[in-house]
Design a protein around this nucleic acid. Sequence first.
DNA 1: TATGAATGAGTCTTCATTCAT
DNA 2: CATGAATGAAGACTCATTCAT
Lengths: 222, 222, 222, 222
Amino acid sequence: MSAGPGRENEKRKERALQRRSQRREQILLAAKKVFSLKGYHDCSVSDILEEAEIARGTFYLYFPSKRAVFEDLLDQMFAQITGAVRRIQLGPDVPSELEQMNGNVLRIIDVLESNRELTIILLREAVGLDADFDQKLSAFYGRLSAMIEGALRLGQSMGLIRECHLPLVSYCVLGSLKEVMLQRLTGKSPRALSREMLAQEILRFNFWGISSRESDQLPGRT
Amino acid sequence: MSAGPGRENEKRKERALQRRSQRREQILLAAKKVFSLKGYHDCSVSDILEEAEIARGTFYLYFPSKRAVFEDLLDQMFAQITGAVRRIQLGPDVPSELEQMNGNVLRIIDVLESNRELTIILLREAVGLDADFDQKLSAFYGRLSAMIEGALRLGQSMGLIRECHLPLVSYCVLGSLKEVMLQRLTGKSPRALSREMLAQEILRFNFWGISSRESDQLPGRT
Amino acid sequence: MSAGPGRENEKRKERALQRRSQRREQILLAAKKVFSLKGYHDCSVSDILEEAEIARGTFYLYFPSKRAVFEDLLDQMFAQITGAVRRIQLGPDVPSELEQMNGNVLRIIDVLESNRELTIILLREAVGLDADFDQKLSAFYGRLSAMIEGALRLGQSMGLIRECHLPLVSYCVLGSLKEVMLQRLTGKSPRALSREMLAQEILRFNFWGISSRESDQLPGRT
Amino acid sequence: MSAGPGRENEKRKERALQRRSQRREQILLAAKKVFSLKGYHDCSVSDILEEAEIARGTFYLYFPSKRAVFEDLLDQMFAQITGAVRRIQLGPDVPSELEQMNGNVLRIIDVLESNRELTIILLREAVGLDADFDQKLSAFYGRLSAMIEGALRLGQSMGLIRECHLPLVSYCVLGSLKEVMLQRLTGKSPRALSREMLAQEILRFNFWGISSRESDQLPGRT
DNA sequence: TATGAATGAGTCTTCATTCAT
DNA sequence: CATGAATGAAGACTCATTCAT
């Protein structure tokens, strides 16, 4: 009547889209909960429906399959973690490289801890589900490890990082982080350490390892 | 006279037992293959039957369930890995601690590499299957990490290992090893590094980290 | 205004419930038929599906198991039979005890005959299925026999029923009724006798036995 | 050597047959036990093997199927019961008809009680197993009822038995006996009554019913 | 858009029977 | 005769997905 039907239509559409997105979120939330509780395989679509308090058909209105929901959750996690990692900046007006790394680790810890359920899903459930998921996971970890590798290479060029097999060491770094966080999130005493201490310990381990001396010699080395 | 048929009977029994054990092995082998290919959940008993070329009933003659086969395979792996780790010996007539650790790492690598399929199962499939499996796995990794922790504590008492949060660092060590091995066994170029080089890189990483300098200071440290 | 959609909703719900109950009935009907034809054990869920012309999943939407259907049918029968039996009334304005008993027998016959299939199931299939069913059956027959016993005791107190071992005689009464009805319902000439004649013959047998004389003496009696 | 090979052969054959028959008996015994414990359907061939302590193949050397064993047991029971029933003798030098009937009932009770397991099988398990069994059972009970009917007819001709619908009443008699014996053999207090008292009560019931008076009139009778 | 009844392919498991030794 | 390993048909039940309302 007033501003024309076009406007009305647009508004309606927008509101519809918003509602749609809310519903999606509601389902994702429910799925996240039940997946992290009982695992992907041990949880049926019915479990999600019950948790989300929606009907069977509604679910398939928003997701093409149970798998798709899981994939979506995984992608959320990928995005958040990727977002937590910042490239190391060089220059006079930025914090030291170590401090920047510390920031990265802290942010990752924050993301993982504030998404405990999703993290557990990522670290436990998502592994070995099927070939497709595995590939997706591999790709993600591959990207992460590539980022680490890039940082290490940069560090090497600056003389901060020692000579080493970068791809391998990248995965060492990645692995130590994953395992520690999994233990922290699933273990009985999840907050024995503050996140700052945790970050520090992780960084220490990755930078200086466990040795108390630098002069140790590996056996069989010329 | 009387020893005749008794002997025969014994022999027959022995041969029967052997055949039984062979069949078991055959089934385990087939299961190992299909599990590592398609994952525990995506592989049905039928897949195992097909691979093993046996009838349905035969399978259940040797294993009470699909689960039991998987459990068996897992236990095999547990045993082999546990067997590969030797306690660090102290004394005048033994190799240096580092060399002993190197031996441990080498042996673990050997076990994992000579059981590629099982290892993949252990590192990928076994996670998040169900509560029971998860507990078993946790227990196993818990044992491993406890062994590492013990070694670290010994090292500390000898002044070889620096002060650190032992439980956390143990999981760092464990995690770096797991991740590297998973990548090596599932990656495209599985043998880019010799096992000796691999062991050396892993040890280096765990002992001295990535840093080129010992004097680095972590930020926020007093 | 507000009562509009609420009413609609209610109506829809009601219709849904009705449909649900119809489906249930459809399945029960089919099961009743196949059970009475081939027996519980020789009839698979597939048989029921075929008879009911529904899909496998639909069946399990209405019943948790094949057993449950059977149990339901049994309970139906229990209820109907129990409902057919009326306590004997005493007083000036009620029919004679014999007429009341006659009424009971007639009603039981009616129930059994109008549920031929269920009766056959009750009298033939339900026995020896498994411990649980057996217990249920025993309990039911126990209740029936207790009712008979009560009636007999009442009769005794009124001088109508002779001295006898009540529990035993109750089972005699029950047994004669069961056997006769089973024969009538499964035999070749099922309606040789009218239900009234049948009831009369049964009552006669139970009241006066087969003897033509009252003075007969049992041997070995003092 | 001495009496010729023919004799030896015969002897050997005979002994073989005897051994064969012993084996059969052993299996039947075991089957009887497990059948009466867990019921026909809930007991597998393996159960019989275990109880009989024979191998799988051996079983099929003596019986073509699990069913056949059951059938055999049933036939045993048929034979024993049939054997317990004697035709009523008329004449000056025989006990009274009642005493003869009493003898029959006593012998039947004896047979049933000394074959408790088989009896339970006959009365509970054998019903509703499958069409074939049912037919066999029906035939058996039909024979029994025919025998009863014959006796009743004889009694009628002698003026001892009242006018009644003989086929129906025969099944009444049969049913009361079956039910009472089933209760006695499966109930908690199996020997509350001596066999003599039991026989007497059964006979009393069948001969004179429950009524204390002969003058009772059935309702609706002209 | 939301619903939930209906579907049926697929899963694990059992067990009576056969047969090579 | 005796054995027991091997068989495979058949069973009950699950659950992701579809579709008429």
